[in-house]
Computed example of a mutant assay.
Amino acid sequence: MKINIRITTGAKKEMQGENLTIWSFFFLEGFSRYPKLEIVLFAFSLVMYLITLLGNSTLILVTVLESRLQTPMYLFLGNLSFMDICYTSASIPTLLVNLLSSQKTIVFSGCAVQMYLSLAMGSTECVLLAVMAYDRYVAICNSLRYPIIMNRQVCVQMAAVSWVTGCLTALLETTCALQIPLCGNLIDHFTCEILAVLKLACAHSLLMDVIMLVVSVLLLPIPMLLICISYVFILSTILRISSAEGRNKAFSTCGAHLTVVILYYGAALSMYLKPSSSSSQEVDKIISLLYGVLTPMLNPIIYSLRNKEVKDAMKKLLYRTHENL
């Protein structure tokens, strides 16, 4: 069978009798159908991005400088904040440029890097949230042995497993996606989101579908099930605590984590584990924007506002900075 595909670069490669296009760049349609909305979206995205950078950077700084926060929970929280910075920085700057530009393009290499970083950070966060749930389970349900079970070496290893799992699954998905011949270079999205790119495929790929399904199940329902099981045990233990102050402290730290889990997994499940025909591409873009901008921005706010230790550490840091000035 001979496949003839439109070429944008003027270059064509002959591969076993097939004429395949080598796309040197892609068009990101984004929200170009709504030009009046683009300025509003630019302002919204810019403000959210700056708050994300400020909030997560501050949280990392506080957990590093404050000796009282040198605990497993804050080690994982620092990793979460760093992931959120990387995740938003992979896509939001491109979105901001394209919202103000008439030619909304991205080169092939930039698209590949953007796709990989988004998948890697998102996948890593799925595993890390499950690790954080286990940390809270041990801290509340097995508090006497907590320092032994969750020693620093174990915590570093668990964080490393989260990163390795996320980066390797993202590498697998990105590599396979970029090898599929594409019959166009107009991506109906504001970023090189893998599902939007795969809609340009010239032919259906069963292998890609299987990889996407397996990775999505491994990184979404399974970690979420583990989180739910952890919180069943956590809740039953909290309700048996006689001290009202102890119950409130446990609810505060667990409530912050559970809020982040619901926000993150709710958006991720709606994106990756739904029938392709269940919603329009415009709805997917809105969900993706909230998933990619709003959740990373809310994470440090949720943890700082609901956590007395973090608030005290931030006050101390601000006081030191004011004294030095």
Rank of each mutant, 00 (worst) to 15 (best):
N56W: 09
A267F: 15
L37G: 12
V283R: 12
D188C: 10
K2C: 08
T8W: 15
R136F: 00
H257T: 11
K12A: 07
D209I: 06
R145C: 05
L273Y: 13
I262H: 10
I39V: 10
C86L: 13
T52W: 06
M15G: 02
T88Q: 11
S216E: 06
V127R: 04
P223E: 06
I302G: 02
G292I: 01
V164M: 13
V215W: 14
F108I: 01
C228L: 10
N248Y: 02
T94S: 08
S252F: 00
A267N: 10
L100F: 00
L75Q: 03
S57E: 08
M115G: 11
F25M: 04
W23T: 06
S304C: 13
N19K: 07
C183W: 09
S252A: 14
A133Y: 01
L53D: 12
F44I: 01
S162W: 03
S102C: 02
D209A: 11
I51Y: 08
L172R: 11
L318E: 12
V310K: 08
T174Q: 00
Q153G: 02
T253A: 03
V161D: 05
C228G: 05
G292C: 10
A313T: 03
S288C: 14
F44E: 02
L182H: 02
N56T: 09
K249M: 01
L20S: 04
P221F: 02
Y87F: 12
L186G: 07
M208G: 03
L144E: 15
D135T: 04
E245H: 01
G292T: 09
C155D: 12
K249R: 12
K13L: 09
K316P: 08
R145T: 04
K311M: 14
M224S: 14
R240G: 09
L80R: 06
I241F: 00
L220N: 05
L129H: 09
D135A: 01
S277M: 11
A90T: 02
A244I: 01
L129G: 02
Y272A: 07
L128R: 08
S279P: 07
L37P: 12
T58S: 08
E18W: 15
A256L: 05
E323F: 14
I194Q: 08
M1R: 11
C141W: 04
S162T: 01
L269Y: 08
I211K: 04
V64E: 09
E309A: 12
P35D: 12
K285D: 03
L171S: 07
G255F: 11
V40M: 15
S230H: 13
L178F: 14
V107D: 14
D209N: 06
K13W: 04
D209M: 07
V62G: 11
L54C: 13
V156L: 09
N248D: 02
V127K: 00
R145P: 05
L317F: 13
Y87R: 10
T9W: 06
